[in-house]
């Protein structure tokens, strides 16, 4: 089937099979390997991407389901070589250890800001990260990073 979407700001048309998962299309066909596959069972959030600006799990969408929609992957966040404020906050706060969960955490963080604004308390962040697992147990700094990233996004 033919799939038309806006991917990281560019119109893209690709051929996909009906049973192809979005994460498979991104990683295997389009080479966008920043979107990770962790659990592959809709729980860990490593595959989070932004669909029309909202985080969703790319392992639990068929590629064909994003027909006509706008998709942003971790590769599409930085603008002109400058990290997105949420990415910069994860770097500044050392919001990662191995980094595997980080792309999904960044996307979830952006979603939390979209829903709750720029001044986030810890409980809001923790509840908002319920669908993201970090197996290095680096949550303390991840929470700090989302709070800092949220503040920085106010200055966008």
């Amino acid at each position: 089937m033919q799939l038309n979407m806006n991917l990281n700001g560019e119109a893209v048309t690709v051929e996909v099979a009906p049973e192809q998962l979005l994460v498979e299309l991104l990683r295997d066909d389009l080479g966008l390997t920043g979107t990770h596959i962790g659990c592959d069972t809709s729980q860990c959030g490593a595959c989070n991407v932004l669909l029309d600006g909202e985080p969703v799990k790319a392992c639990t969408l068929l590629a064909v389901q994003v027909e006509g929609r706008a998709l942003t992957t971790i590769e599409g966040l930085a603008q002109g070589g400058a990290l997105h404020p949420m990415q910069a906050a994860f770097r500044a706060c050392h919001g990662l250890q191995c980094g595997f969960c980080t792309p999904g955490m960044v996307m979830a963080g952006i979603g939390i800001v979209a829903r709750h604004g720029h001044d986030l308390d810890e409980a809001t962040i923790v509840h908002g990260l319920e669908g993201n697992l970090c197996r290095c147990t680096g949550y303390r700094n991840i929470i700090k990073a989302v709070a800092e990233g949220a503040r920085a996004m106010a200055g966008d």
């Binding site: 959030g45 979603g111 993201n132």
Partner: peptide, 9 residues
């Protein structure tokens, strides 16, 4: 229900 990403779908 679920988590924010699940609730978005």
């Amino acid at each position: 229900i679920g988590d924010p990403q699940v609730r978005n779908r």
